[in-house]
Design a protein around this nucleic acid. Sequence first.
RNA 1: GCGCCCGUAGCUCAAUUGGAUAGAGUGUUGGCCUCCGAAGCCAAAGGUUAUGGGUUCGACUCCCGUCGGGCGCACCA
Length: 585
Amino acid sequence: MNIFYRYQEEVVKILNTMIAGGELPAGLDLSRVKVEPPREAAHGDMATNAAMVLSKPAGKNPRQLGELLAAKLKAVPGVAETSVAGPGFVNFRLQPEQWLEIIREILVSGIHYGDSKMGKGEKVNIEYVSANPTGPMHAGHVRGAVIGDTLASLLEKAGYDVTREYYFNDAGTQVDVLARTVHLRYREALGENIGDIPNGLYPGEYLKDVGQALAKFDGDKWIGKDEKIWMEPIRHFAVQFMIGMIKKDLDLIGIHHEVFTNEREVVENGTLDNVFKILQEMDLIYQGTLPPPKGKEMEDWEPTELTLFRSSRFGDSSDRPLKKRDGTWAYIMPDIAYHYDKIKRGYKWMINVLGKDHGNYLDKMRPAVAALSNGQAKVDVIFNAMVKVLKNGEPVKLSKRSGNIITLREMVEEVGAGAVRFFMLSRTPDSELEFDFVKAVEQSKDNPVFYVQYAHARCYSVLRNARTMWPDIDLSAGALAKANMKRLASEEDLKLVRLMAGWPRHVESAAEAHESHRIAIYLHDLASEFHGFWNKGRDDTTLRFLIEQDKDLSVARLALVKAVATVIASGLAVMGVTPVEEMHG
RNA sequence: GCGCCCGUAGCUCAAUUGGAUAGAGUGUUGGCCUCCGAAGCCAAAGGUUAUGGGUUCGACUCCCGUCGGGCGCACCA
């Protein structure tokens, strides 16, 4: 259990005793009482807001209440000293052993340090990538892919039951275009001179592979036939091929979805009709005419009676059409049906990672999900902004082979999967990101991937040197956990430990906010603290990790170093980045 | 015009979801290698958090207005 909760419980226990003893009025709401690390380390190890939160309902001066609480808190085992500060914060320090215990916990838990039960095993569905199967993965897809995949890992670490899902549209006009292009490439594969790819078809040369595969598979059976005959089989063939290609691309950055759902299936298996019926039975469907959009000049607007969904009952700005005027389904209908399918599969949260240009997707889905789940399920959408791909500050030249895009494969081959993933998480999703091929492999502190990896490698460097110094030393986590941690008495030691003690809190708050990029920020902080410690050892020999004359202290420091490496590895694991034990090059 | 997102150091971005003196990197200035990896570290400097109100013990964070930017705006995917 995370150490802050432990002391939060102690604080609540004290408050309850005070209520029982009449020092505080009964019926106080203690849910807002928190124990957190103070912003300034100088204030203490932990701080509680209890006195400030309760002063009004308890009718007491916050400082006085704080003094009362501080006095009682001081008697709690493990607490070294307490004080009241500012508007009524109760700050307290723990006995160093309390902190040092964290090192043992990290060593024993390994990469699972920071795992939480916050999610209570609730089912969460994260849908990401979801690119249409018409081409290879490219720069435009990578960011959402990494954000979604990392969020999935993060939520798993926080105790949710996560499904990684990919939804692709194989029912729209784009896949028909794909089929036509593939037919052309197929004729080419069979020796025909097709000339330039006509406008409106996909120019990328990657479709040559599909054409060739089709030629090998079906021979010349589609030559000279009418489109009506070959459209469906070739579309199917091409879509399957592209999905296979996308899976291979995603594998390059370690992304593996568990469930692939296609739109055609949702339509053909009747889910869509079923959902419409359900909405009708709920009396949420009617025939009506919407007012024109406010203020916008619509030259072609004319009042039309459409089949409408009463989404405004669920917070939407207006009702929405589910059928076009010709009676066919509006485009949001399959999406609604798909979400209904997810609801039926038991998800409490449905998270969707989309590009910023999808604007009001959330507004459209939320009412439908609220209606269809009876308010039980929630949708969230993470919108991510564009990635600008640069090389030394200059826009990267586009590749002909892939159809004038920068493919994921090129990115990974040039800088490695770890750097790609780390960079994609280095900013909040909604801000634009520059991905520079040169910077991503630069070996300096400007490069956050390098900086964090370097800290990890340095840890292992220390461990290697320890073995040189004491060839028979046992560096296993189990052995190091038995080190004499009390020797870690310097402020530098404790700063690192406190930071690592906060890892479980970061995991939980990042998971709750659905913000995977915070992991990268935390790791950067930790790496920075470690590099700082390392350099202090240059001036002050008592702060070296390895001190030949003092093996007892050295072993304790080795435990600390191993713990740092473990927490970094734990964070990188969430990000899907492999930690390195040595830098090379 | 309506809705959503955003506005933080010269630049690129954080800020433990309402906490105490708003932090990193870059750029500028000055230091640190007989020493576990200087691929790094330390120090100085840089701010009325776009702006005006409000909510409360306390606001970058929540609410309202204004200014500025991005995206989306009946039935097109």
